[in-house]
């Protein structure tokens, strides 16, 4: 079970990013727990300066855009 946090202020891109991760996880059959995190404290804690950002199991893997599909596959398989 992976814990995925999508950090963002709730803008359209952040919602899309979360949906993408969810769809890819379903496709790969990887169990994930997706949380949307919009608090400023969380962004500070992970050192995120541009959103949407993606944290997998407490590691920041991506920030600033909706990630590419291949990257999501890699993170979830890795």
């Amino acid at each position: 079970m992976k814990t995925v946090k999508v950090l963002g202020s709730g803008c359209k891109k952040c919602i899309k990013a979360a949906e993408l991760v969810e769809a890819v996880a379903l496709e790969l059959g990887v169990e994930v727990n997706i949380e949307k995190e919009s608090s400023p404290e969380a962004m500070l804690a992970y050192g995120v300066m541009s959103t949407p950002a993606i944290v997998i199991d407490e590691t920041l893997v991506h920030s600033g855009s909706i990630p590419g599909r291949e990257s999501v596959v890699n993170w979830l398989n890795g």
């Binding site: 202020s9 709730g10 400023p40 962004m43 500070l44 541009s50 959103t51 950002a53």
Partner: peptide
């Protein structure tokens, strides 16, 4: 820069 990023940018600069 889009205004939806002002908070993370503000905190990033500040920290």
């Amino acid at each position: 820069f889009c205004s939806c990023s002002s908070i993370p940018v503000f905190l990033g600069f500040t920290s």
